[in-house]
């Protein structure tokens, strides 16, 4: 198994964004009431993460990382603290460009997924993808794979949760547990299932 494929599996299942790392939970819970919405969100997630993580990698290594300006005679310059603002800017721009591209060339997809795109600008999982990329010193190829993998993991998890919640729609739950409470418990159970992947990865 190649390293990149392994990274993909790792980011999609072992370090699953919502279930293991608690990232992107706001949208994860809010949009998992209906399966169609969940799938739309998942697809949008894969696209945005697969694009923004490598793009931010380029910007970070070219402009912000310590030593990036050594060619200009400033080897000590470290602007990595600006990463946060730069990343958010890039994410917001990518989301808008993606929305316009879809609107122009694939209106059907835009109608299905378009409403979810603006939500993704302030989604923790996407920003976290870029921050993890910096923290773990990924290369460009690794960033792209990591972004796609994390997006896929999110998509799988949110679609599963939505499917379960749809089945529970008519369940007779105690009043206090209805909705949010039950969603948390379900997420916990799914998280328990996903932690089996971590065991498999550790055993390898």
């Amino acid at each position: 198994m190649s390293d990149l494929w392994q990274l993909f599996l790792l980011s999609a299942f072992v370090d699953n964004m919502p279930l293991t790392l608690f990232l992107g939970l706001c949208t994860f819970l809010a949009l998992s009431k209906k399966l169609e919405a969940a799938i739309g969100l998942g697809v949008a997630m894969i696209g945005v993460m697969g694009l923004t993580v490598p793009l931010n990698h380029l910007i970070y290594t070219a402009l912000l990382a310590p030593g990036a300006w050594s060619w200009a005679g400033l080897p000590d310059l470290d602007m990595s603290y600006l990463a946060l603002i730069a990343f958010i800017g890039v994410i917001a721009a990518v989301v808008q460009v993606l929305e316009m591209l879809l609107d122009r060339y694939a209106p059907a997809i835009h109608a299905a997924f378009g409403v979810f795109l603006p939500l993704l600008t302030v989604q923790c999982a996407i920003l976290a993808g870029s921050l993890f990329m910096v923290e773990r010193h990924y290369s460009l190829a690794q960033s792209a794979v990591f972004g796609l993998g994390s997006g896929t993991g999110f998509a799988v998890a949110v679609a599963m949760l939505a499917a379960i919640r749809t089945r529970l729609a008519y369940a007779d739950l105690p009043a206090g547990l209805r909705g949010l409470g039950m969603a948390f418990v379900l997420t916990g159970l799914m998280s328990l299932g996903f932690s089996a992947f971590a065991q498999m990865a550790a055993a390898q």
Binding site: I59, L63, W69, L74, L77, M79, L82, I85, A86
Partner: peptide, 12 residues
């Protein structure tokens, strides 16, 4: 550094 950082963010 201040100058570079500011102009960098603004340019971006």
């Amino acid at each position: 550094e201040i100058f570079l950082a500011t102009s960098l963010i603004v340019t971006l």
